[in-house]
């Protein structure tokens, strides 16, 4: 799903909601996943002029889950470790999008190359663990 402007955020969140409802994810886990996803699309919009998100249903040991892959071709992040720290922001913001998203989901992976872009993958399982 393409994310190019601010108006895409709510419909995107609704897609994640539909998918997680379909696999029977509990409300609290849905809320965590969608909030994390919301932070990541906002970053894509703010720092990389948008990008795209791949939404997938996956399963492991008979438990269903959702995997979201956020890919942008923005400027990339020079120091990922620093960006993952609570309170670090180049956008004069609170700097809790990335670390907060990581806390909210079961699996979080970020890869970034300066000049090429950033890919963030998150996984959240139906039962939240």
């Amino acid at each position: 799903m393409q994310i190019v402007r601010e108006q895409d955020v709510v419909p995107f969140r609704n897609r994640v909601r539909e998918l997680s409802t379909k696999i029977g994810m509990s409300l609290v886990n849905q809320t965590k996943l969608i909030t994390a996803a919301s932070e990541l699309v906002r970053n894509m919009l703010k720092y990389a002029n948008g990008g795209k998100v791949l939404l997938e249903t996956i399963s492991k040991n008979a438990q269903a889950g959702i995997r979201l892959t956020f890919t942008d071709e923005g400027p990339g992040i020079a120091d990922v470790q620093q960006a993952m720290r609570d309170g670090f922001s180049t956008g004069k913001s609170l700097g809790l999008g990335l670390p907060g998203a990581k806390r909210l989901v079961n699996e979080f992976d970020i890869k970034s190359t300066v000049g090429q872009g950033t890919t963030v993958t998150i996984i959240h399982w139906k039962h939240g663990r």
């Binding site: 809320t31 998203a101 806390r103 909210l104």
Partner: peptide
């Protein structure tokens, strides 16, 4: 505020 929202905000750190 919905309980799920409140729980999530705490974990987000907001």
């Amino acid at each position: 505020m919905q309980p799920a929202v409140a729980i999530t905000l705490v974990e987000l750190g907001l």
